[in-house]
């Protein structure tokens, strides 16, 4: 799988990362290098092997349903670039 500059542009847009045009070609080479390295895994025969979703072969721990957190709006809002009262304020999003 090779990434061309158009695909790089699209991935960058989806991730909301600004990429200048002169960075597209070097970036695609770098990313293709990484993908090529990982692609070696494709040589392993995995027929009949269950997909592995994590390194730890254990089930997820669950917690009890109790309210143990929250109640600190000032801490939540502390880093907000803009706020209005207890709300975050962002540029208007209208659909």
């Amino acid at each position: 799988m090779a990434l061309d500059p158009t695909t790089i542009r699209r991935i960058a847009t989806l991730a909301r990362i600004q990429v200048d045009d002169d960075r597209l070609e070097p970036l695609s080479q770098e990313l293709n290098g990484i993908l090529g390295w990982i692609a070696q895994l494709n040589e392993v025969d995995v027929d009949g092997v269950e997909p592995l979703t994590g390194g730890a072969q254990m089930a997820m721990k669950m917690r009890d349903d109790a309210v143990t957190d929250g109640g600190y709006p000032d801490k939540i809002l502390a880093n907000a670039p803009d706020r209005n009262g207890a709300f975050f304020a962002v540029p208007k999003v209208v659909e």
Binding site: R63, A66, V67, D69, G70, G71, P73, K75, G85, F87
Partner: peptide, 27 residues
């Protein structure tokens, strides 16, 4: 219907003051 959220311990109740039922996980 539950007391707390799916992945955090903050309250799932409806109608509280804004951002009072938010944990660092939810934010």
């Amino acid at each position: 219907i539950s007391q707390s959220k799916l992945f955090s311990g903050s309250s799932a109740a409806f109608g509280a003051e804004p951002n009072t039922q938010v944990s660092f996980v939810d934010a």
